[in-house]
Every structure is written in C-alpha cells, then in structure tokens.
Design a protein around this nucleic acid. Sequence first.
DNA 1: GGAGATCGTCTGTGGAGCAGACGATATCAA
DNA 2: TTGATATCGTCTGCTCCACAGACGATCTCC
Lengths: 136, 136
Amino acid sequence: MDDVAGDLPHGTRGYQVLAAVVHDAPPTQAALAARLGIDRTVMTYLIDAFEGCGLVERRQDPADRRARRIVATDHGRGVLEAVDARVRQAEAELLGGLAEGERAALRALLERAADAVAHDEDRCAVVARATAPAAG
Amino acid sequence: MDDVAGDLPHGTRGYQVLAAVVHDAPPTQAALAARLGIDRTVMTYLIDAFEGCGLVERRQDPADRRARRIVATDHGRGVLEAVDARVRQAEAELLGGLAEGERAALRALLERAADAVAHDEDRCAVVARATAPAAG
DNA sequence: GGAGATCGTCTGTGGAGCAGACGATATCAA
DNA sequence: TTGATATCGTCTGCTCCACAGACGATCTCC
C-alpha cells in the first residue's frame, strides 16, 4: 500500500488526505484532521508538503478568516486518479489467485463482518484496510 | 490488536516476539531479529523490557559465547497463553456477524489469496494481518 | 597465528508526533 | 460596544522510536 502511494508525500496517509480533499467539499484543515484522526499540528506540515508539490491549495475561507479551505488542484486530481488506478491494480494482483466470483464473495464477507463491527466507523476504510495489508 | 496485546511490552511486536520465543527452539537474538524483520539494536532493548518483566531470560549459548539464547519463563508462557486467548476472542468478535460456515469460507479465501501472492512470506503472518486490522 | 566475520551492546542522529503557547479571529454575554 | 472565552492554523520544544556506525568479545577460516 505504501509502495503504491509511494510518490505521494507521506505515503498512505497522504493518499487518504488527498482523497478526502478531492472528494469532499473543500474541507478546513481542522475538519480534515478530525476526519482522518490526525493531529492538527501534523496536518499543518502535511498540507505544507502537498502545497509544495502543487497538489492542493490553501484558500481563505470567506466566512472565517482564521480558517483555510483546502482545495485540490487539477494536478492533484490527476495524481489521485493515477494512484487510485494503481491501488485497483494492486488489489487485482493481491486477489489474483481468486476467480471473479470468489473475489466478490470475499468482498461481501468482509463487508458484512465490517458492518457488524464498525457501525461508527467509515466502512470503506475498514474494508480497504482489511483488503490491503498483504500488498507489501 | 494493539489493544489485545496492550499490557505486553511493545504491543503487537512484543506479542510476535514472545510467540516466537515460546514456540521456537530457544532462538538467538540475531535469529529472532532476522525472523521478525527487526533491527538487532532494537531487539536488544526489546529483550531488555521482556527480561525486566520476567517474561524471558537470556542464557549463554554453550556453543557460542557471543550469542544469547532467549528462553521463555513459565510466567512468559502463561502470559502468552492469556494473550492468545484474547486474540482468539477478538477474532470471534470481529467475525461476529458471520456464521461459522462463512468464517471458514472467509478464512479459506484469504488463505488462497495469500498463497497466490506470498510464496516467500510466512503465510500465517499474512492471514493474521489480513484478519486483524479492523480489531481496533 | 592472524584476518575477517559475527554477536550483542552502546552512542549519536534523524524522523515523526504530541503538548503547549501564540497571534489572529470568531462568538457570545453583559 | 466591550470583554471573556473558544477556535483556527502555526511554531517551538520535547519525547519516543528506529537506524547507522562503532565497539569489545568471540568465532571461523586460511
């Protein structure tokens, strides 16, 4: 997983941040940190790195001059798409020993197990984590 | 996972070390480090901690006076058993949403996927990692 | 007997994250 | 309006952790 997200600043965590920035309405640094369980002081230099690579921009929140809205650049969106593609490919390789029907069955079982356990947690995250670890 | 192994020094990694010490013929620190992918300088203070808790002992290797054989104490074996029990319980909770047949099916699918991917890696480790992550 | 490798330990260094403080700003009560 | 308090993002200092390198003791091989 870290291999796949390797050229992103801060590896897997950077991938999560970039994905959150692209898919959500432009979030505040604090909101981003809370959502991903990252300390706000860490988020500062994490966004620094992303901004330095031209993947995201900090914009003044017009309604709150303390806050910064993090928005993805076109480049950032492109990079996320590329990494997403590699994640899908890695998953395919990981499940290469299984037929398509078996993959679906595995996914269904994992999702059901995750549902039963993690009602308060983002289910996609759980399934992604449970699917990914052996990728190294 | 780290919750379950929490009272062991160094959490999950400590659990792996203790399990290796208990189940293998008394390993050398270097062998232990190589087997678990841990730096030898780290292994030093890791074993320090375990020895301080009375979980393991360092013994002179009669055939090589540079080396130390790490052997589990009775206390160490007892603690490992207790932690093992909690791991099994956590796994049961994790898979609580699945019927027994489904659990077996999930395990079989994961093992096949792991087999196809990790010929050079310890299969148990792969399955354990793929099974455990959502436990937190 | 000597050169080189290996074992476990110690020291120094660097990365990473957290607590706390800070200035700027928002919010709310008086 | 004014003042107290909370929040936002940043900066500084600290701690924890792992690794590189060096070390003495010991083994192995020529």
